[in-house]
Amino acid sequence: MIVINPNNNSLTFGTIVVVDDMLLEGLDDNSTLIGRSQGLGATVGRDGSLESMINFVFTEGKYNGSTLAIYGRVVLGVTIERPVIGGTGMFRMATGYSVATPVVVSASKLVYEFDVYVWHKEMKDN
């Protein structure tokens, strides 16, 4: 899950957005913090759509120190499907896709639930 607290509800063409948001294990606000969602986006469509680059940076559990990179088009407030284009650590050579579904949409808070389907080869360090 990602929690986004937008400062500007009207994203006009050319707006750049930078995020560093909580990555929680579940939908509850008291869920375990497992990392951060860090990235940037820019509005590229006159309809308010964004081109976004997000890294899930894992800081807890089995995937601590690993990242997943997700890239693609976003329209805020609707279900978003984007490709997984890589990763580090446990997710080296990752490929796959993510489906992000909005679960809270308000003037001050936007929360998405992510289902991420990843194929990767676990690499052993020498």
Rank of each mutant, 00 (worst) to 15 (best):
F58K: 07
S49M: 08
F91Y: 00
K62N: 02
E51H: 07
T95K: 03
R36C: 02
S49W: 08
S52V: 15
A100Q: 01
T95D: 03
M53L: 12
V74F: 14
A42K: 10
T59A: 07
V78K: 12
Y71K: 15
K62E: 08
G72S: 03
G35D: 04
R92G: 02
R82A: 13
I80G: 11
Y97C: 06
F56G: 09
F56N: 14
A42D: 01
M90T: 01
L33C: 07
R82E: 14
R73W: 13
K62Q: 06
R73F: 15
A100S: 13
L40D: 06
A100Y: 05
I54Q: 10
V44A: 10
F58M: 03
S49C: 08
G89P: 01
A42F: 04
V78L: 09
K62T: 01
I80W: 13
L50A: 01
G61F: 06
I54G: 08
L68C: 01
S52R: 15
L50I: 02
F91P: 01
A69E: 00
P83Q: 06
F58I: 05
M53K: 13
S98H: 03
Y97A: 01
M93T: 05
V75A: 04
R46P: 07
T95H: 00
R73V: 13
L33R: 11
V44Y: 13
L68Q: 07
M90W: 01
G86N: 01
V84Y: 00
S66F: 11
S49T: 15
M93I: 00
V57F: 11
R46W: 03
D47C: 07
Y63H: 12
M90L: 00
Y71E: 14
E81P: 05
G87D: 02
I70T: 10
E81W: 11
V84R: 08
G96I: 04
V44G: 04
G72V: 12
